[in-house]
Amino acid sequence: MLYLHRSSGPNLPAVIFLHAIGTSGWMWQEQIEQLTDFDCLIPDLPGHGHSHDVRWRSFEQTADLVAEIIRKNVPAGRAHVVGLSLGAYVGLTLLARHPSVVERAVLSGINVLPLPNRWLIDAAAYAIAPLIKTRLFARLNARALNIPADRFEAYRQSLQPLSIRDFIGASHDASAFSLPANAAAIQTPTMLVAGEHEHPLILASMARLRQVLPNSQARLAKGVGHAWNGERPDLFAATVKAWCAQRELPDELMNLTMQ
């Protein structure tokens, strides 16, 4: 069973947040502080944070665990789903395997296209894994994620329980990820969103997903990169709130130009 932090109670619309690799539910703190009119459920994914003793086995098993959380903790048995990076892969797998538990989805930073030189990426995961808990690595990663200086120590502490074995397993699965076989049948309203300065392969994946998912939209957040929930926590929270409440999206989101 995954560790679950909950910010509110069952009488508000439920949103479940799925974090990136190498961190934990901690990364959503600034969004949770702003989304007080939602019941926010924040699990630590297998091998991460307080779920470090739960083995990472696959995206499919992880999606099953998330579906179980929703069914057990949300009276209606359905929740909005927000995922970034690793969490977005879990989110898309959840839409494919358990569509009945998802109201609407926000997925950011996901690649569904073949990776060039994938073996190099897998090798890099093995190489950096022993270093990921060191202060130097944490400092470099915090800079890449634009984590504010006053939150660095909390971020570094969140790395300490991380299972290195499961970090490698999740990295390998992410590098091999591809579109679910039933993607074209997914009817869940889905917002595909990324930072304007996201990796080109992820931007191309967004265009591909937009073509395949029948009820999807695609937007770019101005001036930010992959971990834009840390760069612009206010804009990320506003995007989630608007999409889940079916309101007009923030003006700072640009339409993705389809290639």
Rank of each mutant, 00 (worst) to 15 (best):
S171I: 01
T62Y: 10
L113R: 03
Y126C: 06
F137H: 08
A125L: 12
Q259N: 10
R6P: 00
K72L: 11
Q157D: 14
M258A: 11
A96M: 01
V66W: 02
I147L: 02
R139H: 13
P43N: 09
G49C: 03
M258V: 13
L201S: 13
N255G: 08
A194R: 09
V102R: 07
R219Y: 11
L249R: 04
H19P: 14
P214E: 03
H5M: 11
A181D: 05
D122P: 00
L41H: 05
L41F: 08
A63H: 05
R104Y: 04
P161K: 11
I147S: 09
P116A: 01
I32V: 15
L18G: 02
Q187T: 14
L253V: 02
F38D: 08
L213V: 07
D44Y: 10
D166C: 04
A183E: 05
R78Y: 11
Q61Y: 12
L115F: 15
I128Q: 14
I121K: 10
L159I: 14
P75S: 07
L249P: 06
E198W: 06
L92V: 07
A125Y: 15
N117K: 13
L192S: 00
S8G: 15
A170F: 05
Q246K: 10
Q246P: 07
D150Y: 15
W228L: 01
L253Y: 02
Q160D: 09
D39Y: 01
M206E: 04
W243T: 00
P189A: 00
P130Y: 12
H197W: 12
R247I: 05
V82M: 06
D122Y: 03
E231I: 09
A138C: 12
F152C: 05
L159C: 14
A204T: 04
E196R: 02
T257F: 09
G223W: 13
A204L: 04
K72D: 15
N11S: 15
Q157Y: 12
E68P: 06
H50V: 05
D150S: 06
Q246Y: 03
Q246G: 12
L249K: 03
C244I: 01
T93N: 00
L113C: 10
K133T: 11
I70F: 02
N182P: 05
L235K: 08
V90K: 01
R78S: 00
A88M: 04
N146F: 05
G22P: 13
V193F: 08
Q259W: 08
H50E: 15
R219E: 06
D53F: 11
P148V: 01
S175W: 08
N146Y: 09
L203A: 02
Q34K: 14
T190G: 00
W243M: 01
F17I: 06
N141S: 15
A238E: 13
A170H: 04
P13D: 09
A227M: 06
W56V: 03
P116E: 04
A245I: 09
L145G: 14
A138M: 06
I164F: 08
D53N: 14
V240W: 13
L107S: 10
